[in-house]
């Protein structure tokens, strides 16, 4: 449970910068703000749907900055040819949500 988050600090900084650039409201990004960013990856929509399922950990239809980092991490991994897991591996769960 105390394993280090797989999102490295330098990656987190990059993802946080993207997060802020999208105009979060109350520290959250709605699905309609995140969707075009993920679509921009040109990954299949069913893959992106799974990325969303895994990253919206509290299933409120919004991503906070940690959830957004999970989404971006999975998208970058998928672009490198790695498969998106069916469920979120514990090391990918943000420490704030364990």
């Amino acid at each position: 449970a105390d394993a280090p988050w797989v999102v490295k600090p330098e990656e987190k900084m990059k993802f946080d910068t993207i997060f802020e650039s999208l105009g979060p409201v109350g520290g959250m990004l709605s699905g309609d703000k995140v969707k075009p960013v993920l679509l921009n990856s040109n990954l299949p929509v069913d893959i992106l749907g799974r990325v969303w399922e895994l990253s919206d950990i509290d299933r409120d239809g919004m991503l906070d900055r940690d959830e957004f980092s999970v989404a971006m991490f999975l998208v970058y991994r998928a672009l490198e040819g790695e498969s998106v897991p069916m469920s979120l591996p514990p090391p990918l769960v943000p420490p704030s949500k364990r």
Binding site: G31, D32, V34, K35, L38, V45, D46, L48, G49, W52, E53, D56, R59, D60, G61
Partner: peptide, 13 residues
């Protein structure tokens, strides 16, 4: 339409 057990909060469904 959402799959059984799916989330209506998913913007990709």
């Amino acid at each position: 339409q959402y799959p059984a057990g799916g989330s209506s909060t998913n913007p990709f469904l």
